[in-house]
Structure formats: C-alpha cells, structure tokens
Amino acid sequence: MRAGSAVAAVKRRSASRASKLYLFALPATLLFVVFIAYPILWVAGQSLYVGTTGGAVFAGLANYITVLGDPTFWTVVRNMFLWGVITIPVQMLIGGLLAYFIERHTHALRGFFRTMFFLPVVTSVSVISLVWVQIYAPYYGIAQEYLKDVGIVMVTSPIGDPKTAIYALIIVNIWQWTGFSMLMYIAGIANLPGEVLDAARIDGAKGWRLAVHVIVPMLAPATKSLLLLGVIGTLQTFPIVHLMTGGGPNRASEVFGTFIFKQSFVLGDTGSGAALSVIVLVIALALSLIQIAALGARLSPAGRQRP
C-alpha cells in the first residue's frame, strides 16, 4: 500500500516534470492556434454566410457561386497561371546561370556579385513598384526612350494597356526575386560533394557537359524547393500589382491578392472575400500536396541531403 503510493507519487512527479517539458512547445502552438488555425476556421465558416458580420445569414454555397460566376475571377485565374508559369522558370534559369558563373568562375569578387544581385530582394517592394512605374511611364520614362534605340516602339505605357499590363508586372516580379533563386542555387552548388565532381571530370565531363549532365540534376532539391516556394509566392502576389496598376486597367491585371483586398476591404463584402480566401487556400494546399507527393519536394529550401 505504502510502496504503491510512493511509486504513484514518483510517477506523478515525473509526469508533472514531463508535462512541464511541454512548455517548450507551448508558445509556438499558441501562436499557431490563435493566428493561423482559428482565422482559417473562421474564414471557412464566414464564407457560408452573406451580409455584414453583424446581420449575416446562412447562405450555403451562394458566395462561392457568386465568386465563380464573376468574370474577374477567371481573369485572376488566367493571370495567376501566367504569373507562375513565366516567373518560376525564368527566375530559376537566370538565378541558376548567375549562381553557376559566380560560384565556379569568380573568386575575389564572389561576395560582391552575390550581394549585388540579391539587393532587389531587400529593397522595399513599395519603393521598387514606384520606381518601375516611373521606368514604364510614357513621355518621361526611360523604358520607351531606350527601347526605341533597339527598335521597340511603345505607344502607351505597358502598364496602361490591358493587353500588356500583366506581363509588365511579371517582369518587375522576376527582377525583384531572381536574386533569391540565385542564392538558393549558390547554396546548392557550394554543397555539391567534391568527389562526384572530380569523378565526373576524370570521366571527361567539362564545361557545359559537366553543368548540364552533372550539376543540374544534383541541384534538383533546390529546384523543387524553388518550385514549391514559387507557387505559394505567386498565390500571395499583392504589393507590386496593388501599387503599380491597382489590378487595372479595367481589371486586366487583377490577381488573387488585389481581388480579395477589393472584395473585403473596399466593397466590404466579407462573404465573397471569405469565399475567395478559402479558394486560394485550397488551391495552395492542393498544389503543394501534389508537388510533395509527385516530386518529393520539401517546404524547406533544400541544398544538401541529410544522410
């Protein structure tokens, strides 16, 4: 009896000590529950109601039907598709080439090039947007002035024309984020195992053959991470579009970010804003899970594999 209660006491003490250890995990869990999980559940619930938050009535899928019937929604889908399909490979290509030449062919200036090409990433996106508005400006912008010299004549500002606006914005986005792709590939190249490169060189692989047949496949983990991060990045595009075209002209360059912003905060239509939020969330989760299942992509940008 007495021995039993002593054991129980010890058990209780070690149990309370073990539960104390959960304090290490508590702050992160609390932040997640309050600021990620709860808002997601709330927005999912809210997407089923119409009207303002006070006097909302249950409406089933009405908000989703309204949103999907809105032609702007399909413009957004097209724009997001173009954005991802152009931005992600172009950034990988330019970033990868820069990383290759900087890592394998520069020495004294390596740090300089790495830093300079990364600077757009650390330059405030609102500053970048206003600078590019000036570059694209008709009459006094430098784009039309200098492109004239190479035979490209722009009649209007590229962001003022519904046909070209989205592409003009995509260029800005590529310019801003290529440095990030470069740095990911630099980490990948720097961590390539030396023995493999030496073996390939002994087999006679040199220059481009070495790059294409040995280095590119070995950088697959970095490429997969960039793809995954690129898809999420595309879906949360907002500042460049909001600041440069506001989704215009005539809604031609609308993206999910600006569409949600307008429905929720300009029109105050919480129901369709919520439905849109849920749609974006579902697309993001679906695309991420497909990539993780099909490619074994990782959410952490990967360089070297752990044994």
Binding site: A28, T29, F32, V34, F35, I36, Y38, P39, I40, W42, V43, Q46, T53, I232, L235, Q236, T237, F238, F256, G257, I260, F261, S264, F265, T270, G273, A274, L276, S277, V278, V280, L281, A284, L285, S288, L289, L299
Partner: peptide
Amino acid sequence: TTLLTTLMVPLASMVLPLAIL
C-alpha cells in the same frame, strides 16, 4: 507537421480573417 502546413498558406488568404480578429 501541423505547424508546417503554415508554410503552404498564402498570406492573401489570411488578411481578411486576421483583420477581423
């Protein structure tokens, strides 16, 4: 693993619920 799913959540889908919260 649960917390990791946050990395798949685009901020665009969080602004409305966070603003209300």
